[in-house]
Simulated scan of single mutants.
Amino acid sequence: MKKNKNFKSDHYRTEMQNLHSAIENNFHDKVSGYYFVELDPTKRETKFGHKREYSWLWALCAMFEATNEIEKIDKNANLVADIYKNMQHYYDPAPPKPGYGEYIVKLSKGQRYYDDNQWIGITGLDIYERTGKKTYFDLGKSMYDFMMTASDTTLGGGLYWRENDFETKNTCSNGPGVLVALKMYKATKKQVYLDNALNIYNWTNDKLQTPTGLFYDNIKIKDKSIGKAIFSYNSGTMLQSNVYLYEITGDKKYLERANKIADSSLAYFYGGEKFRDGYWFNGVLLRGYQHLLKYNKDLKYILGFKKCLDKALKEDKNEKGLFTSKDGAHNLVEHGGMLEILARFAYLEDHYDLGTSK
């Protein structure tokens, strides 16, 4: 249902603005310019002989997407460029293709994860589509080139999870891989991108989709056993892949598949009153719900999500305006995820009647 012109609410916009201020006040280290990984210094990790007090790349991926969504509803926000600049501390030009490492390279060079780079590529290409700035197209192209180094014919195709680790192929590196390839096709109309997107898409459906239409976490190379954890973000990337494929091809089978994933995920993830997994994971599924709304006008997916969001806003927020994760931590990735969720709901409340929020 489209929003009634007389219905006015800025509830989620206000929550978004407050959370963004809280993140900047509590996580952004004004001395180094980096973001802290965790609010509590005693919970910051030590690895490879270095205390890793600053953000992992994953959390900056969350902030990159969240600030992109804020700029969509506030054209004067000007936030994306600073996050992009911050991410360059993680840039690792090592062969076979340049990419971004898991941590600040000069402090503690570590692993390169294909999914982290794909999240950056998805957001970069979205910014390019929104602004036309070539820097972000080049970023997306670079992330595509890096992720394709994860491709081989083992188990019939698919992409590995992280560089030089050949133990599993995961939905979390294949679902977003489909999206990067599809967004490159949209930007260039070069057939190779669509072909590779479909190869990854078909492999993921074949190897990792559950009988109900959701997605398992991974398949092990050694014995083909399935890691059967089911997370919201994996459903989200494959849901949105189907929406993009419907847009690109006009084939209704993709829209039917998107609706099936949406229905199954609504029951599984939002059948109760609380989020089943972390805010950032849920934010990726919300991307799929919001995109699907262009073709399926039923607000039930958004409203089911909203029920859990409103409960989190009521029960999980502390006096600093920050949120406590399931393990009791106050980490940046979950705050970036919640910030994206609130920015998306700020858009939704401007365009649809979502009812009241308590």
Score class of each variant (00 low, 15 high):
1 M>C: 15
6 N>G: 13
9 S>D: 02
10 D>G: 07
30 K>E: 11
31 V>D: 11
33 G>W: 10
39 L>V: 01
41 P>W: 05
48 F>Q: 13
51 K>C: 12
51 K>L: 12
70 I>P: 06
71 E>K: 07
72 K>S: 12
74 D>T: 02
87 M>L: 14
92 D>R: 04
95 P>T: 09
98 P>W: 03
99 G>Q: 05
110 G>V: 02
111 Q>D: 12
122 I>W: 05
127 I>Q: 00
128 Y>M: 00
131 T>H: 02
139 L>G: 01
143 M>H: 05
153 T>Y: 11
156 G>S: 05
162 R>S: 12
165 D>H: 14
166 F>V: 15
170 N>K: 08
180 V>S: 03
191 Q>T: 14
191 Q>M: 09
193 Y>G: 01
194 L>V: 08
196 N>G: 09
201 Y>W: 07
202 N>I: 02
202 N>T: 13
202 N>P: 02
204 T>S: 09
206 D>I: 04
206 D>P: 06
206 D>Y: 11
211 P>T: 08
220 K>H: 15
228 K>E: 12
228 K>C: 10
229 A>V: 15
230 I>N: 06
232 S>W: 01
237 T>L: 02
242 N>V: 03
245 L>N: 07
246 Y>Q: 00
246 Y>P: 05
251 D>I: 01
252 K>L: 14
260 K>S: 15
262 A>K: 01
263 D>T: 15
272 G>S: 11
272 G>H: 03
281 F>H: 11
287 R>Q: 09
290 Q>K: 15
301 Y>M: 04
304 G>Y: 02
311 K>G: 07
313 L>Y: 05
316 D>T: 10
318 N>K: 10
324 T>C: 15
330 H>D: 06
333 V>T: 10
334 E>Q: 13
336 G>L: 01
351 H>A: 13
351 H>C: 12
354 L>R: 00
357 S>R: 00
